[in-house]
Design a binder for these strands. Structure first.
Lengths: 183, 183
DNA sequence: ACGGACATGTAATCGGTTACATGATTAC
DNA sequence: GTAATCATGTAACCGATTACATGTCCGT
């Protein structure tokens, strides 16, 4: 139930409409907590019902500008300081690794190589993104850079692990070993 | 929709009942793709409807032993070799980082320190687990060790990143910087 | 005889995704 | 005038979680 807190977090630095929030999600939280338009509007409705946000102003085209309330701020703080982050996530990338034995040696190798390449692409993409973002000095950019650094380190580890695993595959699945297994 | 493939993957090395699968999920896939009992049984029903698995034998207490079919094997291979793994996951740990500016310097520091400690605990837990698992030579253990290695590297990166971020916090939020910000 | 493990199933709820649906304002 | 952007909302569906519900076999 963190979309709620993502919205509260964004509203904590100033009022915004659902439409505004959607843009912010797309450009700064996309890699960390993606949200769709329909999700945002319904969440804003629920947050208003719960008293965590309130409509502060109305504009043209039915625009509703939401502002965080004291209760909302309290909820945000509570979530940030008292609630333990979820320790890990499902990974269909790793799930496939468990079943690598079902593939031919070459297919398995191709899978791991693909992971290394994807991680490398991601690493380069984030490095590029950092150059673009580095100029901003608003809080979201400053802390966004911390998150970005995490992404860079994570991508590097993924890349290096996949390369290691590919070598490991050779160790496990050489014809010699296979013969021993059967013998 | 990967629970389906997790089940197919487990059944690819031999028939099993829902109950059996549940045990395997708990002890070997728990960190990668957790599944609940109710989810497993309904997924087995759907897989049977789709022709990817079939009841191979019935035992005491209504036990139904499922076996993977050729269509199931084909689906598993397709998923492993053709379907691109999802590139990244939501992280409420990183989401909080974006809003660190809403906390006092000390609370923010405590958050990052907590992350470093949690990662360190996890690293030690996995290292211990590796000692236990290292003995098995069944495919699930062999490839499970690859996944475990990933977990170890991931935990190490998380720990080091959190320590880095804590120092970074000092850089950003020293009283000197604050004064400059306002000036 | 009885408790623990074995064994399967259903229902309610929740958060997220996709698609549908509508309309107002602004810049050219 | 008209296209792009601004702006909100609803409905159907899907996968995951939690709780409820039931019954059997085996070892002691």
């Amino acid at each position: 139930m963190s979309l709620r807190h993502a919205v509260l977090g964004l509203l904590s630095s100033g009022p915004a409409s659902g439409y505004d929030l959607l843009k912010i999600f797309e450009l700064s939280l996309a890699n960390v907590w993606p949200a769709t338009q329909s999700q945002l509007y319904s969440e804003l409705g629920r947050l208003a019902d719960a008293g965590f946000v309130a409509v502060a102003a109305e504009g043209p085209r039915g625009r509703k500008e939401y502002a965080i309330t004291d209760a909302g701020r309290a909820e945000l703080r509570h979530w940030m300081t008292e609630v333990e982050p979820t320790p890990f996530n499902r990974s269909d990338m790793l799930l496939r690794v468990f079943f690598l034995g079902e593939l031919d040696a070459e297919e398995a190798r191709a899978y791991l190589r693909g992971r290394a390449e994807a991680a490398d692409r991601r690493h380069r993409g984030l490095a590029e993104l950092r150059e673009v973002v580095a100029k901003g000095d608003d809080p979201l950019s400053v802390y966004g850079l911390m998150a970005l650094e995490w992404g860079l380190r994570f991508a590097a580890v993924q890349r290096d692990w996949a390369a290691w695993a590919e070598r490991e595959l050779d160790r496990i699945r050489t014809p010699e070993d296979r013969r021993e297994d059967q013998g």
